[in-house]
């Protein structure tokens, strides 16, 4: 989906760490069922907050080093970055409202 950017080792610095806006990263993998379950929820969040939030997904299979750097030991792992720092995180598939609450996105 166009609303969710593909994050790689090459664009991580520019898109995630140096972004002016908050960035939500979905650490996922092809073989992870709950990751597929939560993908539409992440897409929906991206669509609804396209002017205030950058949303990307990062394949832990291909970018294991980045996953390890952020201590990812369970996926889906959702991390909210602000000014290059992880400020909130959530692990596991969950309903949209609960995810937004855990990430501090609820209004």
């Amino acid at each position: 989906m166009a609303d969710v950017m593909e994050i790689t080792a090459d664009n991580f610095q520019a898109v995630v760490l140096e972004n002016e806006k908050p960035v939500l990263i979905d650490f996922w993998a092809e073989w992870c069922g709950p990751c597929r379950m939560i993908a539409p929820v992440v897409e929906q969040i991206a669509k609804e907050r396209s002017d205030s939030l950058v949303v990307g997904k990062l394949d832990v299979d291909q970018h294991g080093a980045l996953a390890a750097r952020y201590g990812v030991q369970g996926i889906p792992f959702l991390a909210l970055f602000e000014h290059g720092q992880v400020v909130r995180q959530a692990v596991g598939a969950m309903p949209k409202a609960q995810l937004e609450r855990q990430l501090g996105l609820s209004d």
Partner: peptide, 16 residues
């Protein structure tokens, strides 16, 4: 949970 405690072997076994 999410840091070594999981209910999904296929998802998280990979990390260990």
């Amino acid at each position: 949970r999410g840091y070594g405690v999981s209910s999904c072997a296929t998802c998280d076994g990979f990390f260990f």
